[in-house]
Amino acid sequence: MTARQHDEKNNSIFKIASNLAMACFVSGIIIAGVYFITADAAAQKAADLKNTAMKVLVQDADKFDPVEGHEGWFKAEKDGKTIAYVVPSESKGYGGTIKLLVAVTSDGKVLNYDITAHNETPGLGDKANQDPFKSQFKGKKAENLKVVKDPSDKENIQAMTGATISSRAVTNGVKKAVEEVVELTGGK
């Protein structure tokens, strides 16, 4: 068979379309099969991961319970007593929305936070989830959550070099979470 004949034989739009449809169909079956096998494990891992993430935020806690009336809030308990709240928060960063998970003690101090989703500049803004920027937040109350550029000012939050907007966004996100928790507990 010459190349020309081969070409004509396969040239009908139906043949071309069915060829592509077949490829998509096979691909769909493969993906569906893999999804079917992995779905349970994936859901399990996602739940584990969330618990581990909260455990990292509030290391003393032995149990996490959802807070009624607040979507996505958890209270961290130790020996049956609430020691902290884990609250989702978000803020507008340099490259879009930054999503945070903030751990706040019942009296309104920051315990820790974790950035769960962001689009900040790699190598600059994404350092917001690492020390030394992160460790500045521990123990701070809402009024000290303010970004400054003066290196001698230890009361407030030092901006990251080259990423002032990201620094501000994260700080505002954390501050919002602290204020919400204070509103719930009355700061006690």
Partner: peptide, 18 residues
């Protein structure tokens, strides 16, 4: 074909190496 392979990799990573 590429999309299928990448999606399968994604599903496997999600399930076993989150």
């Amino acid at each position: 074909s590429i999309a299928t392979i990448v999606t399968v990799v994604q599903l496997l990573l999600q399930a076993y190496f989150p």
